[in-house]
Simulated scan of single mutants.
Amino acid sequence: MQAMPSGHPSQSSRWSRSSQSTINKWAAGIADTYVLTQLAELTGLGIPIAVLPFVNTALANNRPFRRSVEELRESGVTVLFGEGGFVPHPPRTGGQVMESYPWTAALSAVGSSSLFAGQCPIA
């Protein structure tokens, strides 16, 4: 497969509403679904990826999740988590925060074109 020229507009990807499970599996290299396989491949190709987690404060406070966020960042993934990205909500309030979910943060992070644009399922 021939690589696209550096900076080609289709060399970026955005993933929104990624669950704790998706983030943890992706960081661990577990590719047991189509979405995770695509994310693993795009990461390995070095294609810029921006992801917006969707987790509550209880899930965000788990050490494995925090390690996974750092692992993805070290792999070159832009994890929009914390100030300027997604700020976790209290448990059992996810439905109430969807209107304030920062969808545009992922769009801004990698530009307006993408190879894949979608939502990871909430696990």
Rank of each mutant, 00 (worst) to 15 (best):
S108I: 03
Q38R: 10
G94V: 00
F116D: 02
S19C: 10
T22K: 00
M4A: 15
I49P: 06
A40D: 10
G95T: 01
F86K: 10
T57H: 00
P48Q: 08
A40G: 07
T37G: 14
E70Q: 15
P5Y: 07
F116S: 04
V79Q: 09
G85S: 04
S10M: 15
V87L: 08
N61W: 06
P53F: 12
G7F: 02
L52M: 04
W26M: 01
T104P: 00
I49N: 05
A28P: 03
S108T: 15
T78L: 09
P53M: 13
S19I: 07
Q20Y: 10
E71M: 13
V79N: 10
R73D: 12
V87G: 02
V110F: 04
I30M: 02
S6P: 01
I49S: 01
Y34F: 12
N62Q: 14
F54W: 14
C120I: 11
S16Y: 08
G118S: 12
S21G: 08
I47W: 09
A106C: 08
F54N: 09
M1A: 09
P53R: 11
V77F: 04
G84A: 04
E99G: 08
S12T: 13
G95M: 04
N62D: 12
T93A: 09
T33H: 01
V87H: 06
V77Y: 07
G94M: 06
S68N: 14
T57W: 00
S68V: 14
E99A: 09
S113C: 03
S75T: 05
G111E: 03
T37N: 11
L52N: 11
L39A: 09
A40H: 07
G46I: 05
